[in-house]
C-alpha cells in the first residue's frame, strides 16, 4: 500500500509541477502580450495631444472702432475647400495645417468690414511660399513687417509659420487702419517659435531688384521636378524685366548635378545652345523658343536666368548673380 501511495504522491507532484509550469507560461504570455501595444487603435496619437479641443491661437485682436461680425471658424486640410474652394490645393500642397477666419465690422459704418484669414502653414518657408506666389501685381510693400504688402483693399503678410490675409470690403482709410492694427496685434500676440528670416533672400543682389518680387517655389519650379526650394526674383535691367533664380543645394556636387539635369531638361524640350560674349557663361546659355535661359552652379547654389527677352541683359544679371553667390559660397566655406 505504502509503495502505491508513494507513487501516487510522486505522480501528484509531477502533475502539480506541470500545471504550475502552465500557469507560468500563461503569466509569461500575458507579460509578453502587454508589450504588444498600438495606441493609435484607441485613437491615441503618441506624438501630439490631438485629443484635446483645438482653440485658435488668437487672443483679442478686435481693432478699435470695429467689432467681431462672425465667430472664429477653423478649417483643416479636409474641409479647406469649403472656405476657399479651388485654391485649397495650393495651400494643402504647401504644408497647410489649419485656417482660422473671422470677420470684423466697423461700429460706425456697416458697409465697412473685413475678413481675417490666418493660415497655419507649419513652417515659415511654406508660409512665405504661399505668400510670395500669390503676391498681387499692384502690391505695395509694407516695410513695417518682415514680408508684407497691401493692395487697394487688402493686406497680406507672413508671420512665422502663419500666412495672414486681411481682406476688406472697400478701399477705405479707416478699414486699412483697422487691418493694420489687427496685423500689428497678430505680430505682437501670436507667438511663433520659428521666426527666422529666410536666408536665400539676401543672396539676390539688391541693385535693380524689383521690390517684393521674390517668390519661393517649394517644388516643380519652371515645370522641372528637380528644382525644389527655388527662389525667383525680378530685375529691372536696361528697361527690361528679367527673372533670376536661386536654389540652395546641400553641396557643390548636388548643385552641379541639378544644374546639369535642368540644362538637359531644357535641351530635351527644344532648347538650342547659344554662344556667349563673356567666357564665364560658356555652355550654360540656351535659346528656348526665342527667350534666353541660363543655368549654372556656384558653390552649393543652382542659379540662373529664366525666360529673358534680351540675351545681353540676361548675361548681365547672370554675372551679378555669380559674383554674389560665389562670395556667399566662400563665406559659407569659411565658416
Amino acid at each position: 500500500m505504502g509503495l502505491i501511495h508513494g507513487r501516487a504522491r510522486r505522480l501528484e507532484s509531477a502533475v502539480s509541477i506541470c500545471l504550475l509550469s502552465i500557469l507560468f507560461l500563461i503569466g509569461l504570455g500575458v507579460f509578453i502580450k502587454q508589450f504588444d501595444m498600438d495606441m493609435s487603435r484607441f485613437g491615441i496619437s503618441t506624438e501630439s495631444d490631438t485629443g484635446t479641443i483645438r482653440q485658435p491661437p488668437l487672443r483679442s485682436i478686435v481693432p478699435a472702432g470695429f467689432e467681431a461680425l462672425s465667430e472664429i471658424t477653423s478649417y483643416n486640410p479636409e474641409n479647406l475647400y469649403e472656405k476657399i474652394d479651388g485654391k485649397a490645393s495650393l495651400y494643402v500642397e504647401s504644408g497647410f495645417k489649419e485656417l482660422f477666419t473671422q470677420r470684423f465690422v466697423s461700429t460706425s459704418d456697416e458697409s465697412l468690414w473685413f475678413e481675417l484669414f490666418v493660415y497655419d502653414m507649419a513652417a515659415v518657408r511654406n508660409a512665405f511660399s504661399v505668400y510670395s506666389v500669390q503676391t498681387r501685381a499692384e502690391a505695395v510693400i509694407l516695410p513695417a513687417f518682415a514680408y508684407a504688402y497691401k493692395t487697394g483693399n487688402a493686406l497680406f503678410f507672413v508671420h512665422g509659420r502663419y500666412y495672414i490675409e486681411l481682406v476688406g470690403s472697400a478701399e477705405s482709410g479707416e478699414l486699412f487702419k483697422a487691418m493694420t492694427e489687427v496685423a500689428q496685434k497678430i505680430q505682437a500676440n501670436l507667438t511663433v517659435d520659428d521666426d527666422s528670416r529666410i536666408a536665400e533672400l539676401a543672396l539676390f543682389p539688391q541693385e535693380d531688384l524689383v521690390p517684393g518680387s521674390v517668390k519661393l517655389y517649394l517644388a516643380n519650379a519652371f515645370g522641372f521636378e528637380g528644382l525644389t526650394d527655388t527662389f525667383t526674383a525680378r530685375y529691372q535691367i536696361d528697361d527690361e524685366t528679367i527673372t533670376g533664380f536661386i536654389s540652395k543645394r546641400p553641396d557643390l556636387q548636388d548643385a552641379q548635378a541639378v544644374a546639369k539635369s535642368y540644362y538637359n531638361f531644357l535641351i530635351e524640350n527644344g532648347a538650342v545652345v547659344k554662344n556667349t560674349a563673356g567666357k564665364t557663361l560658356e555652355g550654360k546659355i540656351v535659346d528656348f523658343y526665342d527667350t534666353t535661359e541660363i543655368v549654372f552652379a556656384t558653390g552649393p547654389f543652382v542659379a540662373g536666368i529664366h525666360e529673358a527677352q534680351s540675351q545681353q541683359a540676361a548675361e548681365k544679371l547672370a554675372i551679378m548673380l555669380i559674383n554674389k553667390l560665389s562670395k556667399a559660397a566662400k563665406a559659407e566655406s569659411n565658416d
Binding site: V30, K33, Q34, F35, D36, M37, M39, I44
Partner: peptide
C-alpha cells in the same frame, strides 16, 4: 485605463 504606462492598458489582454 487607456495609456502606455506599464500599469495602464498597453497590450494587457
Amino acid at each position: 485605463t487607456v495609456g502606455q504606462k506599464w500599469w495602464q492598458l498597453r497590450g494587457w489582454p
